[in-house]
Write a protein that binds this DNA or RNA. Structure first.
Lengths: 118, 118
DNA sequence: TCCAATAGTATCATTATGTATACTATGATA
DNA sequence: TATCATAGTATACATAATGATACTATTGGA
């Protein structure tokens, strides 16, 4: 009856980390602290306003970041990691390390193949 | 000039872990060992043959799993985690634990909101 | 001769995700 | 009065990911 739902909890972490832009947004906020919208946009080259807004809203919805609006003109909005969001840091770092090692792994594999053609 | 490429290595781990089905496929293979195609299909409810094939091919391409074909009729193909693939286990487990905690976090939040309506 | 079983492909439809571009509000400043 | 800046929203469009369904090859057995 019960289809091993416990195996699928990984998805919950994944859904927060994925989206082409979330990891880098989170790493920037973790490593560099609170940032305003336009600073984030500059810090994440290539992202469109729509996607940045979109990803920030999703992260806010999950309590990973907070959004603070200053009632000024021109507008000022600051985004920060929450304490809860900081609990993701070990995963982010583990993934970052694995990702780096994996990039090297792939380079080595590609080299071997160029030395030993089929 | 250089746009902090090191921040994006997370993506490499992510690209292997994501796809709606990869985490559960990997967890099944890690926890239950070698499995044939049809067993995996049964073990991952809801996946289509196309997606299972697709995800397995991508994992194989990255050296995370191996594919062993037995020249029989009807065909028999076995999939296993590689030693290299096993290096993903800590991340998978960390994500699984975080995901479980996060599910609880969301439940509590939902409860609070039902007790304190706006 | 026809069917069953396994491990797939092939084709098309649907959704999700991402991009491009234009547009808005406000008040300070030129 | 026109222009700038910020933090968006709205709209249309393009591409990629996923899903549903039907189909294939092989050969031992009914």
């Amino acid at each position: 009856m019960d289809k091993q739902p416990e195996l699928c909890r990984v998805e919950d972490a994944l859904n927060i980390l994925v989206g082409k832009w979330k990891p880098i947004i989170l790493l920037v906020l973790l490593q560099e602290g609170t940032k305003r919208f336009s600073d984030l946009k500059r810090r994440v080259p290539g992202i469109t306003q729509k996607m940045l807004t979109n990803q920030l809203r999703e992260l806010e919805e999950e309590d990973i970041i907070t959004r603070k609006v200053y009632p000024q003109v021109p507008p000022k909005v600051e985004y920060s990691i929450t304490e809860y969001g900081k609990t993701l840091e070990p995963i982010l770092i583990a993934m970052h390390e694995w990702g780096t090692a994996h990039t090297i792994h792939k380079m080595k594999k590609a080299q071997q193949q160029s030395h030993q053609p089929s």
